[in-house]
Design a protein around this nucleic acid. Structure first.
Length: 429
DNA sequence: TTGTATGATTCGCC
DNA sequence: GGCGAATCATACAA
């Protein structure tokens, strides 16, 4: 604080005469030669500075102008700035040098990786593609959802950039405003350029915090979008009718052993335009639900049995063999599964041979197969011959333990991919 | 809006 | 690893 005396000495002989708005005693007192008078002058000036905000606008303006024009003002201003610098601001200064926020860095990295920030280059498409591959859905469906994902991501990106632009604009406007204000105030208050810079950086930090919130919200939106896209449950679609019929056909025609082999699954997946995993899911669900509520599925089972029987009859009437590509197991154009399991065929032929289904035109060769297969089945102990009319499609396949009776290992089930005559049923063997 | 159907997921068992 | 069982989450019809 060695400037203070210097300032005071430099003040010696300095007058304020001619400056409007200053008290008369100041104007007079400045011409004095004693130190007490000079101190009194400076004290008065400081007092005016301190009380300037209490004055009316016009009065304050006039005083401000007088003070600004005072020849001592620059020196006094510097002194006050330094005092201020060395007290309050020195504390703040220690906090200025901050390392880059790791949280902000993470957000930036993520936004960059997702293609929200940075140059637009179909951001997130890799994620979308990966998700599409993981979901294993049909190609066209994936493509549609992929574009949907990109569209939504693009929307997020647009909102992000718009908001970011707004924040930046607001930040610049506010900074300019504050700088102007401080510069203006620096004419009457001890505000150094350094302090203005510091204030600007404080403003920038505040706006950075807001930006971080924006980035965080954007990241959350992207995560939600991604999770929705990746979560297959959310985009569950029922299989189309044809696919369901193919699967049901296979299931009911292999009811004694509804465990398709890998090859069969692949073939079913191909026919139904779904994945092997979906086929597995479907059979898993079907088995458990059928077993849980057989009565409920009775009608459905009858329907498929009847359909199978009709197909068998048609096939035989057209001179086709039971193990030809157009087997009795196939229902019209929907499927073409080989009748691979004697138990399955038996269930089908129950409908042919039983009281409940007498309208079907059963070919002679089919009837002979029925007899043969009945014999085979009776040997395997799979089913009894006594079926009532309303037991057209009975759940004999399920044993007392809840498992499927005389079910061979799943891999022994004939694959639909196999050619005619490739009967691999354990029971039929 | 509600109940049911259905595809997918998870967990434990073998 | 495949399966059964339970459960979740969505689609869909009434």
């Amino acid at each position: 604080m060695d400037e203070q005396p210097r300032l005071m000495h430099s003040h010696t002989g300095v007058g304020m005469a001619g400056h409007p708005g200053l008290p008369q005693h100041m104007q007079e007192g400045t011409g004095g030669t004693d130190g007490d008078g000079r101190k009194q002058d400076i004290g008065d000036i400081l007092q005016q500075i301190m009380t300037i905000t209490d004055q009316s606008l016009d009065e304050a303006q006039a005083r401000k102008h007088a003070l600004n024009c005072h020849r001592m003002k620059p020196a006094l201003f510097n002194v006050l700035c330094e005092i201020k610098e060395k007290t309050v601001l020195s504390i703040r200064g220690a906090q200025e040098e901050e390392p880059p926020d790791p949280q902000l860095m993470r957000l930036d990295n993520m936004l960059l990786a997702e293609g929200v920030s940075g140059p637009e280059k179909g951001g997130g498409s890799a994620a979308a593609a990966a998700a599409a591959a993981a979901s294993g859905g049909a190609g066209a469906d994936n493509s549609a959802e992929h574009s949907d994902y990109r569209a939504k991501l693009s929307q997020i990106r647009q909102i992000y950039h718009t908001e970011l632009e707004k924040y930046e604009q607001a930040c610049n406007e506010f900074t300019t405003h504050v700088m102007n204000l401080l510069r203006e105030q620096s004419r009457t208050r001890p505000i150094s350029p350094k302090e203005i810079e510091r204030m600007v950086s404080i403003i920038h930090r505040k706006f950075s915090a807001i930006q971080m919130q924006l980035k965080q919200s954007t990241c959350e939106a992207v995560m939600i979008l991604r999770s929705r896209f990746l979560d297959a449950r959310r985009k569950r679609r029922n299989f189309n009718k044809q696919a369901t019929e193919i699967l049901n056909e296979y299931f009911y025609s292999h009811l004694s052993n509804p465990y398709p082999s890998e090859e069969a699954k692949e073939e079913l997946a191909k026919k139904c335009a779904i994945t092997v995993a979906q086929v597995s899911n479907w059979f898993g669900n079907k088995r458990i639900r059928y077993k849980k509520n057989i009565g409920k599925f009775q009608e459905e089972a009858n329907m498929y049995a009847a359909r199978t029987a009709v197909n068998a009859a048609n096939a035989s009437s057209h001179g086709s063999q039971a193990n030809s590509p157009s087997t009795p197991n196939s229902a019209g154009s929907a499927g073409s599964f080989n009748m691979s399991n004697s138990g399955d065929l038996f269930m089908s032929v129950q409908s042919l041979n039983g009281d409940s289904y007498q309208g079907a035109q059963v070919g002679a060769n089919v009837q002979s197969q029925v007899d043969t297969l009945r014999h085979v089945i009776s040997q395997t102990g799979g089913y009894s011959e006594g079926l009532t009319a309303n037991q057209m499609y009975s759940p004999q396949g399920i044993n007392a333990n809840g498992g499927w009776q005389d079910a061979p290992t799943p891999s022994s089930v004939t694959s639909p991919t196999e050619g005619p005559g490739s009967v691999h049923s354990d029971t039929s063997n």
